[in-house]
């Protein structure tokens, strides 16, 4: 199981520099929003929200992103609003 988790994180880091995953070991997930002390997630901030919708257009689950429940909820509301005015897709194929 540890192995699989390692890979997942590696893939994420892999964007930046190819072989980096070899050096990165376990890192605790943390809530990005708590870290930055975000109080309210704005639905107009497409750039921010896009980080939480993978290719398919679904909302990234918090078991992957590590977002805390409070912020995940805020994020969900923001994404749903953004979808409503066509800033984000409902689905993408």
């Amino acid at each position: 199981m540890d192995d699989r988790r390692g890979k997942g994180r590696g893939a994420k880091d892999g964007k930046k520099g190819g072989f980096k995953k070899k050096f990165v070991f376990k890192r605790r997930k943390f809530c990005k929003f708590c870290d930055e002390k975000v109080e309210y997630i704005d639905y107009k901030d497409v750039r921010l929200l896009q980080g939480f919708i993978p290719e398919r257009g679904k909302i990234l689950p918090r078991r992957i992103s590590g977002t805390c429940s409070m912020h995940q909820r805020g994020l969900m509301h923001a994404i749903k609003r953004a979808r409503n005015i066509a800033l984000l897709p409902f689905t993408a194929d």
Partner: peptide
Amino acid sequence: ILKWISVRKDPRAAAEEVR
């Protein structure tokens, strides 16, 4: 008009903009 959305502004939003 293709689409619209109205939202009551969250009081926390202002603080967020400043930040």
